[in-house]
Amino acid sequence: MFRVVRKREWHPTITELWVEAPRVARKYRPGQFVIVRVDEKGERVPLTVVDANREEGTVRLLFQKVGKSTFHLSLLNPGDAIADVVGPMGRPTHIEDFGTVVCVGGGVGVGPLYPIAKGMKGAGNRLISIIGARTKELLILEDEMRAISDELIVTTDDGSYGMHGFVTDALKQVLDRDEKVDMAVAIGPAIMMKFVARTAEPYKVPLIVSLNSIMVDATGMCGACRVSVGGTTRFVCVDGPEFDGYQVDYDLLIKRQQMYLDKEKEALERFKRQHPEAFQGVC
């Protein structure tokens, strides 16, 4: 059993949990994730480890409520237990002193981005961070990102805060400057990563993206998470989650993410009837 020790509600649709998982906390490195199963009947869902506290033996999870599993998780309070937390899964990010690194995060993608950005900074890089959200209320981790970045640019789609526009607009501005950028990392919705790749490609900046395909076991046993990278099939859970951002077939990833849409809707509607309290403030 894995106990929740702290909780923070960032927004009616975004929740943060610190969960006891001492073995994961000890081994975890930036870029890795865990598989979480909320209870005996739950699905196995992947969530990035945003931070780990080795002394306390806890990991920090930050997630957007999009379906049954994430809404269910958001109902847990300190003291409650999660049935399974497995990991750390996936390959850690390759972190070294590249020179100047731009880290781009969209939506809750800023969560998974944070430990990587922190690692990049710690390795000696000059760190330029670009974080964006649809609107001001949905922005997460701004203070923490600011604290580790040499420069932080915030964008909102609706202009309610920071720069009015998409993260790709800010990225283009950065790449148009005189300064040489040696590496870029982008994490967010698949469609955002696709456009980041389009934006960055002409500048020939190496780009890493972290893919969020559907998973089951996350040990390389089922192939549910398969994506096409450079024309070959790869498993996100064991070969990734990070890949060369210019080689990923984003359209395929997006289609595969939609495989269970109708079933997910059914599960969510059912959960809504059983637990209306989980949906307060969510429109």
């Binding site: 739950g42 699905e43 049954k68 599993s69 089951v216 495989m259 269970y260 079933k263």
Partner: peptide, 10 residues
């Protein structure tokens, strides 16, 4: 046993 169990299949 979906939707009693959360994991779907098609």
């Amino acid at each position: 046993l979906f939707p009693e169990y959360d994991t779907p299949i098609k």
